[in-house]
């Protein structure tokens, strides 16, 4: 995976600054839209660890995203009152990461298309758990109470007017943290070994690497990060429904990754913003959003095999 140069990272830092200052110049509606894009970016970035890192295409990824989202109402119900956001965030990461560890342990026994199919089936299993049981409001979903912004006696009361700006800052900070963390991770021996598996799994095994353990670690970590993204989706929208776990969302995230470009860590972020902008634009033009999305996916997959990031390097 090509990591961004110092100059490119400075450029991203500038963009992030522009986004962070958005409350000064943008309407609340656009702040919320930016939060949606940032959450999508976190989700796509977590998937890139699998797709661009280890070369694993998973359709179960949205299940971990959705588990992270459902962790918010589940923890609130479990504790009786909205807990600190640190509590829900930790619970979301642990729930999603734990589930990913379990699914990965089984699904990684298979490879290639088998892996794809089993992740699809596992993902839908989680979808049906929330769709068919009263655990999280069933198929209609659930309006939820947001967690408390703060910890212990240090609590920030966020007014309704300030909320979009606070959520934007929070999502931006988490995305930056995730990006920096993965950037550092891909430079470690672990990150290099993942890239080695993507390039040639047999060679990595032959040189003494425990390929399955490495892939499982990547799968669990990616699931944990997807849970963090899902948690932020629930906190941002104050609403959860089973569609958060469905495989269509996994496919959308794969599209964001492909749209941005598979070979870079910043590609998925670009892809997520492009995808969110596209969805927003198509919504204002036509009621047939599926048509727009379908045509765009088809065009990307036919004409841009290296994504937006590949455009500049041609």
């Amino acid at each position: 995976m090509v990591l961004a140069s110092l100059r490119l990272n400075l450029f991203f830092l500038m963009l992030a600054g522009l986004l962070a200052a958005a409350p000064l110049y943008a309407q609340p509606y656009y702040l919320e839209l930016a939060s949606t894009a940032l959450v999508a970016a976190m989700f796509a970035l977590s998937l890139q660890l699998l797709v661009g890192g280890a070369g694993l295409v998973s359709l179960a990824h949205a299940a971990f995203f959705g588990l992270g989202a459902y962790a918010v109402p589940l923890m609130t119900r479990f504790l009786g009152a909205p807990p600190s956001i640190l509590v829900t965030l930790t619970a979301a990461g642990m729930l999603a990461g734990g589930a990913a560890l379990g699914v990965g342990a089984l699904a990684l026994r298979t490879r290639g298309f088998f892996f794809l199919m089993s992740t699809l089936a596992f993902g839908q299993l989680f979808y049906f758990v929330f769709h068919d049981s009263p655990l999280g409001g069933g198929s209609d979903g659930l309006f939820i109470q947001r967690p408390v912004f703060g910890v212990g006696s240090l609590v920030f009361q966020v007014s309704r007017a300030d909320r979009p700006a606070v959520l934007l800052a929070l999502n931006l900070g988490l995305l930056a943290l995730m990006y920096a963390g993965l950037h550092a991770l891909m430079r470690t021996l672990f990150g290099r070994a993942l890239l080695g598996i993507k390039a040639n799994e047999h060679r990595m095994a032959a040189t003494g690497h425990d390929v399955r353990a490495l892939k499982l670690a990547a799968f669990a970590l990616a699931g944990l990060l997807a849970g963090v993204a899902g948690h932020m989706a629930a906190v941002t929208d104050a609403f959860v429904n089973p569609d958060l776990l469905g495989w269509h969302r996994s496919a959308s995230a794969l599209l964001m990754v492909l749209l941005g470009g598979i070979g870079t860590l910043y590609g998925p972020i670009l892809g997520a913003f492009a995808f969110t902008a596209l969805a927003e634009a198509s919504q204002s033009i036509t009621e047939r959003q599926g048509l727009v999305e379908g045509v765009v996916v088809l065009a990307v997959v036919l004409a841009l095999p290296r994504g937006l990031a590949g455009l500049g390097r041609r």
């Binding site: 794969l254 999305e293 996916v297 088809l298």
Partner: peptide, 24 residues
């Protein structure tokens, strides 16, 4: 025919696009 030798990811996205288009 064009996607026979393409990567899994491309096939997934092609057929995902077809799902959306068939629905439409």
């Amino acid at each position: 025919r064009r996607f026979r030798t393409r990567e899994h990811l491309d096939q997934v996205l092609l057929t995902f696009a077809l799902i959306l288009l068939f629905e439409e």
